[in-house]
């Protein structure tokens, strides 16, 4: 610990004198324009690289689960999808802190982010499903430019098929075979990614076959 020389300020610069008349000068702001903007009618500027929702490139994702290990809120769960060789991450926005460490750590740059951030629901059960999704490829998400979530509805069927209905009407459908790191019984067990931490609470909705 080295002590630098401390330059102490002289006391006249720190003290001030009270007066009755000076506060009246602050009335000049009555004639100036207000600083606030009326939000539903005008819009604010969002920065270019604002940390918002995720996008996933399904072809380059190799299912290594680096994003799942580094997530501070344990919001990522790997999902086995029919037709894809490796699992893909499923992100739960109820837990996500939007820190984008998962984007930084992805070794193939498959996970990315856009600056859209608005997702509001009315506490209906089918709308709460929107919080839990496998991100879509970037060109499907960037089409909507008013900062809202790209999906309008998620429909789940009994045999594991899931249909994403986007806001412009197009649909995206796939079938979920299982969750977790180990593949479902059909494939032979591959060595999952080395994870040294303990996952103490079971992930909700985990179905191991």
């Amino acid at each position: 610990m080295k002590m630098e020389s401390v330059k102490i300020a002289p006391e006249e610069k720190v003290r001030k004198k009270p007066s009755f008349l000076k506060p009246w000068m602050s009335l000049k702001y009555l004639f100036k324009k207000p600083v606030t903007i009326k939000i539903p009618y005008e819009e604010t500027q969002i920065a270019e690289k604002y940390r918002g929702f995720h996008t996933l490139n399904w072809k380059t994702c190799i299912g290594c689960n680096m994003c799942g290990q580094i997530c501070p809120a344990r919001a990522i769960e790997m999902t086995w999808i029919e037709g894809e060789k490796r699992p893909h991450p499923k992100i739960d926005y109820g837990r996500c802190t939007f820190c984008q460490f998962c984007v930084d750590v992805c070794p193939t740059n498959a996970l990315g982010h856009v600056e859209h951030y608005i997702l509001t629901t009315e506490w209906k059960d089918e709308e709460l499903e929107l919080f839990d999704w496998v991100p879509l490829p970037e060109e499907m998400v960037r089409k909507f430019s008013d900062y809202r979530h790209p999906l309008a509805k998620i429909e789940k069927y009994e045999d594991g098929r899931v249909k994403y209905v986007l806001r412009d009407g197009s649909e995206f459908e796939f079938k979920i075979l299982g969750y977790g790191l180990k593949p479902p019984a059909a494939a032979k067990p591959k060595p999952a990614a080395k994870s040294a931490e303990k996952k103490e609470e079971p992930n909700p909705g985990e179905k191991k076959e």
């Binding site: 001030k16 004198k17 009270p18 007066s19 009755f20 000076k22 506060p23 000068m25 602050s26």
Partner: peptide
């Protein structure tokens, strides 16, 4: 302005 209103107010 802050001085006028808060720090130099009687």
């Amino acid at each position: 302005d802050f001085d006028n209103l808060v720090f130099e107010n009687y």
